[in-house]
Nucleic acid binder design. Structure first.
Lengths: 166, 166
DNA sequence: CGCTATTCCTCCGTATACTGTCAATTCCCG
DNA sequence: CGGGAATTGACAGTATACGGAGGAATAGCG
């Protein structure tokens, strides 16, 4: 086994499993496990492609949402990108810390803080768009066009069902 | 919008998006976002089904790995379930805290700590197996048998490609 | 107009998740 | 056999992720 083994290059999974157990139709084949692995891969690929831009997938999604919907508050941005209210708070804090967004109090309703992307944030989004597209593409690399469409459809359907239970 | 909105019941996503923007072929349709949502749902469904057992998906996976491969150390368990070495450390610590596993020093190699499931851990795994199966099933609910097979195949293929990059 | 319910943000606590580092230990090659 | 390389567990630091509590502010109803 290689010494310092980043997740991206981790491969002994099957080998270890076969050597130790040999189970095949086990936990490792269940959707829960596969989905977690998929998410791991998605984050890893995104990080690789966007290494120069110092931004995470979550921060990217939030930043896009803020850009495309200026004037919304944190709660509504959270709903857009499907984040928890608590989580979005930290993410926006980091974005503000990097001067990618601006948070301003709303005079009309002093509970809310209005969100707006900064010029710097807009520039960053433009700059990393090719990398993001590459990342999205690389994830689905082993699927052909028809399979990609089917895969996306399946994911959408599962998500939609969860959004409207019954 | 309902006041206390848990993630499982969050649904205004589309509504907010349509009202504010109307974008369709945007970030929200990209695999990265869909996969993150899928993982969210998987965790949420698991938590719902296993609420009585006080165990998380990650802890469950680790516990099964320890049960099925007694005598392995943390690094090898991590490779089995595709966790980071740091992450597995915390997970095992919690499992040991709940007395679900036992960690013992290996006399032959004093770097290593041998892992073994406890009787309590084994009982818990037996107890929550039905709930776990229900959870795995509910995730793929909107897909029929053939689609489930295809979906699983796609996920496996993406993961395999990432494990053996070229 | 006052009171209650709601909304918004923030903070706390817990659990993943990964990188990097470190000390102790063992391995292995010369 | 001696010493550098590798391995293992632990720790620090950062970033998601989610539930719950709480305070400030607003809305809505009587």
């Amino acid at each position: 086994m290689p010494s310092e083994m980043a997740l991206g290059e981790m491969l002994p999974e099957e080998a270890v499993r076969d050597a130790a157990h040999g189970g095949m139709d086990d936990v490792y084949s269940k959707p829960g496990h596969l989905i977690r692995r998929l998410q791991q891969i998605a984050v890893s690929v995104f990080a690789q492609e966007c290494a120069d831009h110092d931004i995470t997938p979550v921060q990217y999604a939030a930043l896009v949402a803020v850009r495309d919907n200026p004037g919304l508050d944190a709660t509504r941005i959270a709903a857009l990108v499907a984040f928890d209210r608590s989580t979005i708070g930290n993410v926006l804090e980091r974005l503000e810390g990097k001067a990618l967004i601006e948070r301003r109090a709303n005079p009309d309703d002093r509970r809310v803080k209005i969100l707006k992307i900064s010029r710097r944030g807009a520039r960053l989004l433009d700059a990393c768009e090719p990398a993001v597209l590459r990342a999205q593409d690389r994830m689905l690399d082993p699927l052909d066009a028809r399979e990609r469409k089917a895969f996306t459809t399946f994911m959408r359907r599962i998500i939609a069902q969860q959004d409207q239970p019954k």
